[in-house]
Design a binder for these strands. Structure first.
Lengths: 340, 340
DNA sequence: CTGTTAGCGCATTCAA
DNA sequence: TTGAATGCGCTAACAG
């Protein structure tokens, strides 16, 4: 039977209320009393039952998620996970509000953030575009006491409390490790297609990829990164043009979205098979894997990211800091055969 | 404010106790009353607060984990995760007991299982060896009302409630997908090293691997599976002999344990580089990846498996059946750059 | 068959 | 600065 507040109240010779005050660091307790309680806590090895605590204090934390709208499958998937979290809200003492802005529109994100009233927001999670105005808007919220976390794409210069996403440099390196082993051993070019260089996740991937390719697979040179604006049509256009102009392309690394456009180009193409590594499991990339157009897909688990964001925000709102090691998001690799 | 038992008691016009009886499927309630309560539940969209429920019924479920002892890193890792779960026990209303038996010793497992008193065990998780006597011991427990789950390696013919592990056929296919792409495009042999063919997980991997290799990479033929008994010394011996006898080996698929022995052989070897795919992230395989001896390691998350086993056992002990979709364990692929 | 009542471990008024 | 009392949502005796 593990000790309860009653036990420590008894051994410390004080009342429940006083124990509670000490446990929660509330003021209005004599130092002498504090010491007595803390000693009892140590002596009995007391550890608070958080579920009972949450039951008693029925406080609800209003959280805001800011995501891009538009057809991007990955982002829609992310939105789905946020909605899933909303259904769990009652259990997690959260009240989640979902807001969307135009993709890659930094000003729209900043406006949304600026429109938030710190009085009725306990925390904010956003997919950031790395721009001065977004940094300013985030820092404003933080200075007003509202914890902010970035989701999927980070905002390095800001005061955000945490980044809920993968190590994108490592993801790029991983992609290079696969590409280098997959591609023919004859010299050639690898085409790199990104969404936008204003997204810090895309930047990171491109640099990790280039790094490992140069060091470990010097017979393959990099073409790009081209910007496909995470848009299927644009991706189709830039990739089509690059393939037409370069007959020595042996592989493609698609590190952003718009994979539908990529599949259209390569499935229509004749000539030797390309090695293709892309990001994010979506209906399109799953199909491309199954049909053999993609060799591998690197993925980040949206569900984990959303749940992590909530945990971190809640912890910060309660004044604790999260166990960072626990919040690491894995870089998943999927082939056709280990798709979930 | 979401509805509580009080609300549904009020709208159904019954008492709290009756609501509780219906909610928990306890008998001694008229069908008419049951209907009234269930209707109120649906009407109000009631969903039970499990944390409050667990607080109220402070029942503790004694669970038993049966693992092999010995130096196998993966199994020690699994044991570590079980011990982690023991530290969480107070919160999860479990009391976990850890028992170990000699590796691959089916009789020892059966004896351990037979020694369990159903009165003070609410569930059992074991790493199975696929043998008639183990099946019999498991079925005995099940017939006595004790739910059993298999961990890591399944027991297909038994009455176990669930298998907490990966789809090993798919894991073998995944390994083949990697091996086929990694290995030189010239014809050659791929050596397959297993632990024991009495382990259903090893069987599954070998068959999935052979399947995809034959269909997709016919220029590579399979040598083996050799049995390394999950033992570093034995692995070193059989692999060393195979390499000496076959100059056309281009890759090795190590689907069992004993990777330390494998690394010793291939790091001492001269000649063209081999493509190596192994299983389970351990200190050894991690080092082998980092140093370039292994190209990829396929992994199953022990932590997930142990937590899943506990959830399933608890659910079964409460008479519910677990959400199988939620309990799927992923097949992780790690290269040097995405190691956790 | 059904209802009353007293907790589970903790937080939080309201008094003292 | 401290304590007594009440309730969070649910379960479980114990009566009726």
């Amino acid at each position: 039977m593990r000790p309860t507040v009653h036990d420590i109240a008894a051994t410390a010779g004080v009342s429940l209320a006083t124990v509670d005050r000490v446990l929660n660091g509330r003021l209005g307790v004599r130092q002498k009393t504090i010491d007595r309680v803390e000693q009892a806590v140590r002596a009995l090895g007391y550890v608070r039952d958080m579920t009972a605590a949450n039951l008693a204090r029925r406080r609800v934390y209003p959280l805001v998620f800011v995501l891009p709208d538009g057809p991007n499958s990955f982002m829609r998937n992310l939105e789905y996970e946020v909605r899933q979290a909303m259904t769990r809200s009652p259990h997690e003492r959260t009240a989640i509000k979902l807001m969307t802005t135009r993709p890659l529109d930094a000003e729209a994100i900043a406006r949304t953030l600026d429109g938030l009233d710190p009085k009725d927001v306990a925390g904010v999670a956003l997919v950031a575009v790395d721009t001065a105005c977004v940094v300013a808007a985030v820092d404003r919220l933080v200075s007003l006491g509202v914890p902010v976390v970035t989701l999927v794409s980070d905002l390095p210069g800001s005061r955000r409390a945490h980044f809920c996403g993968i190590d994108n440099v490592a993801a790029g390196r991983t992609a290079a490790g696969l590409m280098g082993r997959f591609a023919r051993s004859t010299p050639g070019k690898v085409l790199v297609v990104a969404g936008s260089m204003r997204l810090s996740d895309h930047m990171g991937r491109a640099s990790g990829f280039a790094d490992v390719m140069a060091r470990e697979f010097p017979h393959l040179s990099i073409l790009g990164p081209l910007e496909g604006r995470d848009d299927a049509l644009a991706v189709r256009r830039v990739v089509g043009a690059a393939l037409a102009a370069n007959s020595d392309i042996v592989g493609i690394y698609s590190l952003g979205a718009g994979n539908r456009g990529l599949v259209e180009v390569i499935s229509a193409r004749t000539g030797p098979r390309l090695s293709v590594v892309a990001h994010e499991v979506t209906d399109y990339s799953r199909k491309a894997l199954a049909e053999g157009h993609f060799d591998a897909v690197i993925n980040q688990d949206c569900g984990h990211e959303v749940r992590s964001a909530i945990r971190v925000l809640l912890a910060r709102a309660d004044g604790l800091d999260p166990v960072k090691a626990q919040e690491r998001i894995r870089i998943d690799i999927f082939l056709r055969d280990n798709l979930p």
